[in-house]
Design a protein around this nucleic acid. Structure first.
Lengths: 203, 203
DNA sequence: CGTGCTAGTGACCAAGTGGTCACTAAGACC
DNA sequence: GGTCTTAGTGACCACTTGGTCACTAGCACG
């Protein structure tokens, strides 16, 4: 788009202020994963580009491909397999809602909106098959955990509803970033979420 | 990416079984809008292409641009301005949850998942600025309507939460299409949604 | 039957994509 | 020092995308 007359047809063409090529595959890999995590969370799968990830990681896009093979596999690698978004499930069912709210808010707060959960939502929304499968599996897993803790019928539906609610909250707060949910402080959000989660989870 | 060796460099290259060029700008425009609505709902803004929309509408992509100027304006034109997703608000606050649930389910059911609401969610998720603005405005509008009907403090937060919940439900049911929410019948969904909406809306 | 207007076409373009690959050079081992 | 492996590069490719534009042909009007 910009700059083309100079440097002819260079592809990787940062001004190259100084070159100090160092070797450290592990560190590079980690840097790429980190960059990918942020990029996918911010832009979504479709809009994010390998080159952008590479730029943020301070490498060339060729290396990204070299390490991960493809954009899809890079994505998968950037979403940790332990997606226990609602990990702290075991315990007294009565305090479950509070714990879920707290752990959700803490987790999102820590990553500052660059959480893989956001990336996953964006990827699913842009129709990425791999993300859809991953999301579904993740859902099924947490459902399994809830089943062992919560009593009563309709557990599946209620857990699905909690999941949906959390997805919607994440969408408003970290994707849309507008509206009351986006403006609340972490503590306010916990206070707001808890009774709603309780209402959905335990009738 | 696929298919390229045959037909050299043709751009619009359906086998052209027979050509009968007719003129009817209004109908074409409508067909394009319809096709765009479906395409954006199914693929999201980023993944949907003007050419795909054109193909579905049975025209060339040049015409789409001719009528709408750009992809973004096509998107805006395909999302009706009256987004009263939660229209039937006026009335007894006690029955509000039921009415919201029913009108939501009816609306989504009618369009069979090709509702502009889905397209909007997908577009926002893929980071389309115009969609974000539209969505925010839409939210603000419905908030205004709720304010006039529901009593008590924290209306903004509660309405935002209802919105988030509905976004999440839509996401699970019409985007992800997996999990309990996706498997429920319309009636079951209404029965499931109502108490939850009540819980969030009226404490 | 012209003739003019413009809806509709499709070749074309610049920009950018994901992915490939021949090459370069860092650094471990001898 | 040499040499060998391989992390890392960047030119390149095939292809797609949104958008342009010179042209073509329906159709209303004279």
């Amino acid at each position: 788009m910009e700059a083309s007359q100079a440097e002819a047809t260079a592809d990787e063409d940062v001004p190259h202020p100084a070159k100090k090529r160092t070797r450290d595959p592990e560190a590079r890999r980690a840097a790429i994963v980190e960059a990918a995590r942020a990029t996918f969370a911010e832009q979504g799968f479709a809009k994010a580009t390998i080159r952008e990830v590479a730029r943020r990681a301070g490498v060339t896009h060729g290396l990204v491909i070299r390490h991960f093979g493809s954009k899809e596999r890079l994505f998968l690698a950037s979403v940790p397999s332990s997606h226990n978004l609602m990990a702290e499930i075991a315990g007294d069912p009565r305090s479950l809602p509070t714990r879920v709210a707290r752990s959700y808010v803490r987790r999102m707060s820590r990553s500052g909106g660059c959480d893989p959960f956001v990336a996953l939502i964006r990827a699913v929304a842009s129709g990425e098959g791999a993300a859809e499968r991953l999301f579904a599996v993740m859902q099924e897993e947490s459902l399994e955990m809830y089943r062992q803790v919560i009593p009563g019928p309709d557990i599946d539906q209620r857990v699905a509803s909690v999941g949906a609610y959390l997805i919607g909250v994440t969408f408003s707060r970290y994707v849309l970033k507008s509206g009351s949910l986006a403006e609340m402080s972490d503590d306010e959000l916990v206070r707001h979420l808890t009774p709603n989660l309780r209402g959905i989870l335990l009738p």
